[in-house]
Design a protein around this nucleic acid. Sequence first.
DNA 1: CGCGTTTGACCAGCGC
DNA 2: GCGCTGGTCAAACGCG
Length: 523
Amino acid sequence: MENQDRREFTFLGSGGGGGGNNNDFLRGGPHNKPMMIKEVDFFSNSTSERSARNNNKKPHDHDDETAVKDIGSSTHQVSDPAGVNTGLNLHTPSSGMLKSAYDQEKPNIELIKLRGELDRLHDENGKLRGMLDQITKNYSELQGQLLMAMQKQAQEYHQGQKVEPNGMSSQRISAQQIMDTRPSTALDVNDPSVSDDNKTQELSVSLSNTMEVMSKERDRHMIKVPRKQTCTEDGLDQSSQSWGSPKSPKLDEAKGEEQAPEVPFRKARVSVRARSDAPLISDGCQWRKYGQKMAKGNPCPRAYYRCTMAVGCPVRKQVQRCAEDKTILTTTYEGNHNHPLPPAATAMANTTSAAAAMLLSGSTTSKEALTSSGFFPSSMPYVSTMATLSASAPFPTITLDLTQSPSCNPMQLLHRIPSPSATFPLPLHGVPPQLLGHPMYFPPKLPAPQVLGQRHSHTSMVETVTAAIASDPNFTTALAAAISTIMRAPRSNDGSTNPTNGVPAGLPGSPQLPQSCTTFSTN
DNA sequence: CGCGTTTGACCAGCGC
DNA sequence: GCGCTGGTCAAACGCG
């Protein structure tokens, strides 16, 4: 209660003392009344100001009373030096008609004055809104230009690479869908009545497509060989190669007969390190263990899981405990889901996908860009960019290390293991900020320091990762852009953008398209 | 009986 | 060419 009073008092003080903060008037709600009172008090002495503040607990009562009292005091104090109560006497029936009429006129003048001030502030508010709209508009235009430039660059690049049209066309579409925050007609045709969850998944699809495109572009440069990949299955299972094992007979069959012996096609992996006593982390997806191996240098076996939420889902994951600290569970995801994800899995997929995309977006220039000084700004102290070359991992691996104390940094380690020949002139420079901002669905609160070291619900882990990513200044910027984009997104019929349930209306994507395999949580 | 796990075998890439 | 390693398969097994 006291805090509340103090807060209100502060508000009153700031509004009146400075002649009135315009923003205060924009706040609306119950604070407007005290603000107006303060404006009245501004014309009176400090005694009445204090009086008004003290009476603040009964705003409706003291509102008119204070105004009348202040006017009375300002009018009659000279003629009645003793009359602090002079104004109060105006309410008595003994007052004359002229005096009463005069005193009734006075508040009207003040009211008019206040209304004029209010109108002026409304005008200013309107101007500010106009400026905001203009800025938003400019941003939108710039974003569109960026999209155009990126698409053009991608097109030129792909033409130069002479890639088969099927796959790349779909990827271009994906990229376009990514950048286009408007509703995707092509992707929503499968289900006209797209639920909120589906919308969420659509967004994650877009994000995953971003990774898909980037990964494929990167991999093309890695292997220096045009992919024989056929995206015939209406582009759905184009990610079936994503686990990067052409060795897999089944996957080869799925990809068709053109699976000639070639260099392994790998794509980015997202690895999440977290402390968990549970042998397996549940991330909203259904997994089936298909193998276990003893990895070199680690006494703990590595388990291989395959997503079983849909037939033929190419997503795999590896789970292995850290050799140094067996409480640390490392889960590595690879591949893209070809089915809708449950909300829990979608949320995490979006979050980690954003992290992956954010890092992958930095692989657009050169290997040098991977160094801490090159790619990651100094404002990201938690980003460890030790470019660990790993022969066993000829693909970038984004590791979200959630095992460090979040008091220092929730995402202590966020490094990527680049390809040995990591020169990735990706056509997709950067990631659309509206997609990077997707994980804003979660409360931006940072996890408690002790949370990470214990078993906790997957929700909190999702929040942890989300908070970790959101703590990135760049990500925050992107998040802000995403919010603005969502705000500008076509509203639903009821006029709401539906931001509360975390599903920005009008964002592209389709649950039918492969999704980024980046889901995670602990049991 | 169906489903998931276990586990040995197999295959391919890579380094020497 | 050989061995090592990672990744996958599939039969055996267990469980509800």
